[in-house]
């Protein structure tokens, strides 16, 4: 097995774990942790793709921007979570399901 293929398995693993975490997490902060795991998968995927196409620098520079953007998203998510905690006193997403049907 080449390193590239191992890297791809790593990507799939991160995506799978991140998705699983997102599906079972009840705590908002854990939801955001799960999102971060998903993003890590995407980052590794971009680097691996750069390697696979022989354009590593392109893959790297895309990954840089992904890091920036998704850090920003994580921060906004955390800010929302804090605001939720402040207004509702909970981080449980089950309490955040008033909008339904």
């Amino acid at each position: 097995m080449t390193t590239l293929q191992i890297a791809v398995i790593g990507v799939l693993g991160l995506i799978g774990i991140g998705l699983y975490g997102l599906l079972i997490a009840r705590n908002l902060i854990k939801v955001i942790v799960a999102l971060q795991v998903l993003v890590k998968g995407a980052l590794l995927a971009l680097v691996a793709a750069g390697l696979a196409s022989g354009k590593l620098n392109l893959g790297q520079s895309l990954a840089v921007m992904v890091i920036v953007v998704d850090t920003v998203v994580a921060v906004i998510g955390l800010a929302l979570a804090l605001q939720v905690k402040r207004r509702m006193g909970t981080l449980d997403i089950k309490d955040l399901s008033t909008l339904k049907k």
Partner: peptide, 20 residues
């Protein structure tokens, strides 16, 4: 996906900061 992914030899490419 996995079966079709084979690493190519690095192409001649601009440096990281140039690309970025």
């Amino acid at each position: 996906t996995i079966s079709s992914l084979i690493a190519l030899p690095p192409a001649t490419e601009a440096t990281f900061s140039e690309v970025l």
